[in-house]
Design a protein around this nucleic acid. Sequence first.
DNA 1: GTGGTCTAGACCACA
DNA 2: GTGGTCTAGACCACG
Lengths: 128, 128, 128, 128
Amino acid sequence: MDASLLIIQPTASDPIYRQIVDQLRRLIASGQLVSGETLPSVREVAGFHAINPMTVSRAYGLAESEGLLERLRGKGMVVAARRGGGDSEAERLRLLEPALLDLSRKAQELELAAAPVLERLQQLLGTP
Amino acid sequence: MDASLLIIQPTASDPIYRQIVDQLRRLIASGQLVSGETLPSVREVAGFHAINPMTVSRAYGLAESEGLLERLRGKGMVVAARRGGGDSEAERLRLLEPALLDLSRKAQELELAAAPVLERLQQLLGTP
Amino acid sequence: MDASLLIIQPTASDPIYRQIVDQLRRLIASGQLVSGETLPSVREVAGFHAINPMTVSRAYGLAESEGLLERLRGKGMVVAARRGGGDSEAERLRLLEPALLDLSRKAQELELAAAPVLERLQQLLGTP
Amino acid sequence: MDASLLIIQPTASDPIYRQIVDQLRRLIASGQLVSGETLPSVREVAGFHAINPMTVSRAYGLAESEGLLERLRGKGMVVAARRGGGDSEAERLRLLEPALLDLSRKAQELELAAAPVLERLQQLLGTP
DNA sequence: GTGGTCTAGACCACA
DNA sequence: GTGGTCTAGACCACG
């Protein structure tokens, strides 16, 4: 995996360490990161994104305690062993649920009908 | 409006002042609070929920700068007049754009196809 | 004079009593209010604009102490005696100076050239 | 940027936090503060001017919600990236509209002709 | 009565 | 180190 795969937004409301953990969770669930694959070192990620190494370290530590990553002595962090190359669609949809709930709540606060929201989202999903 | 209509959770991760602003936004969008309606005074809300008046004041001030409330000098805060019965659909959709982009990015990180995502969102939007 | 001649904006940053005094000053300077003319009673103004009588009273009191109005026993407030039917153009322009300075400062903060500002103002002044 | 660049007048009618926000707006509009530049910390400004940190924090928070500043977590506040090198002239003129309407109304209350008003304003705008 | 401002001091999350 | 949040209590302007 390359450090550039991660997207860091230093001004987002989410703290940086959680942005990293969340992305790792999704990249692993989708199979873009496979079991045994080595992650870029803390220094590499920190240097590439100009963030504090401690922040990356904290994210890796949380990911490890969550079972996403494993610490191999001398090799660094690798993606933990999983039952398959990625989660089922239902499983991945479950990981998206919080974002869906958030969007849904906001759309309803704005009194938006379902149609225009779905239409716009389809546009965004159709052009990756 | 009565101070008891607001729900304050002092232990939530969201700060109290934002809980208040968010609820006001919701209550106004849903029509439970109508233009011109008077809000309970800062001291009333603070007393009822046993929180500091300044915290309530901060929420009211933010809601005012957001255009939700208006300050009637010496009288208190009232729900602001909505410009022309609410924003246009295009305008409201524009306000939703950041959340849509966020969801879209996460769905693509999960390598989810558009169909299941749209389907689930439609469910959520259909049952307000 | 009729109470409807005054324009009150309860949500403006300027306090109401000063809005009244300032308008009286301008209406007298322009000759729209002439010496000896009777002003609407405190109750009348307060009732018409749905504001607190004390606020109107305070404004009248300040206008009196400024020499704009005089309190005639049994008649109420009247416009004070002045040397002419209104001030000279230079004098009235002087009264506008604070607003001109304010506008000028804001235009410069916005890095706006003089031309578009003057053009827009001419439009506004041309269609009273 | 240095904390001494800010000028605080504790006796002015404008509250301190707004003095700070207004100055930041001016400094950014005039280019004295450029995108990405780091601001002095809340504690630094508070210490230098002998005011309460919360007052500075309030100013920074408002400036952030206005889009003037961005918060870099754990690092501090920086001048926000300007979208496309500044607003268009039409956009900036639109921001000036309220002040223009205010001036226009006052000029008409003074029954001033357009010419002398425009002439004086041109003088003011010509000597920044 | 209303909200606004400021202070002093505490505790917390994040980097 | 950074800013964020909350409290307790004071004083003020406005109506």
